[in-house]
Design a protein around this nucleic acid. Structure first.
Ligand SMILES: [Mn+2]
Ligand SMILES: [Mn+2]
Ligand SMILES: [Zn+2]
Ligand SMILES: [Zn+2]
Lengths: 151, 151
DNA sequence: ATTGATAATGAAAACCATTTTCAATAAGGT
DNA sequence: ACCTTATTGAAAATGGTTTTCATTATCAAT
């Protein structure tokens, strides 16, 4: 449907327009469970919307990120990866395991209770000591995935 | 001194040669307490070693990283930053607070006991559940530093 | 010390993800 | 439908990093 999307309302509320391209891009993101690069999205888009340029994909992702609709990750394999945020997608709060060999990214939501306890204490302490206003945290583990074999 | 460096022995042991450039670069890194980009190092180098090219800086940093002598960080401000690792530098295990406005990076080593406890449990659990061999972790907090003012 | 195999280097060019430019187009309030 | 202006696509520019390649330096063997 053209109206009624939470993300659409958010953009509208900020004075941005709801365009075909933006809808198509959010649609791609909300129907995948992988982390896509701008180019990934551009190609996925080409099947149904061959007229949307890569430039628009980049611009849209930037807009969506600035409005808290997508998260941008730079895991170090050259290109940035994107996924809908918890608030606008369906994936719960999670972090990542990144394979150094094949680049596979595994989402995990385990031990979140422990994380919460640890973060709550740490963020409070750091914020106070360094007079730093923490907006978000990033926790990632790097190593070798099952398929690539341990070593 | 030309010989006797731990990092030099490490490289030697792996069949690499000890060159003027590599020494100068490690020297820069071991005499700073900030996180330097390849270009930062290149310019810092130019005072005493104006004949070392930026290409060599990049190549050396890659070599040092692959041998566990420096850590490479991509905090998302365009250029990668480097610092000596705990094993080869003098900075203890730490993580970072990154200001979204000015890019300032604050090292912190607080609450490491809590972190250790949290990580030990989490890494063990994740490794087992996802058959993933964890080599390293990354924990970072993003927000606004004192100078840039909270908002 | 000299030699020789080859690892390392600098300069310039290539690379490549992302950004900028700019004229054309489309969104949406009227 | 109309008008204002946000948005778009294509092409060019950007900028950090990598590659190429001919020259130089390291270091083990002599
Ligand atoms: Mn994810
Ligand atoms: Mn640091
Ligand atoms: Zn893998
Ligand atoms: Zn700041």
């Amino acid at each position: 449907m053209r109206h009624g999307h939470k993300w659409g309302n958010k953009l509208r509320g900020c004075g941005f327009r709801l365009t075909i391209g933006r809808e198509a891009i959010v649609d791609i993101l909300s129907h995948t469970n992988s982390h896509m690069s701008a180019e990934d999205i551009f190609f996925a888009l080409h099947a149904d919307s061959p007229n949307i340029g890569l430039t628009t994909v980049y611009r849209t992702l930037e807009l969506l990120e600035k409005n808290g609709i997508v998260s941008k990750y730079e895991f170090g394999h050259g290109r940035a990866k994107f996924e809908l945020t918890e608030a606008y997608g369906n994936k719960p709060h999670h972090h990542h395991l990144i394979c150094r060999k094949c680049g596979t990214i595994i989402d995990y939501s385990d031990f979140m209770e422990d994380e919460l306890a640890y973060l709550k204490k740490t963020e409070a302490g750091l914020g106070k000591k360094y007079k730093f206003t923490i907006h978000q945290h990033s926790i990632s583990f790097f190593g070798i995935c099952e398929k690539c074999g341990a070593s």
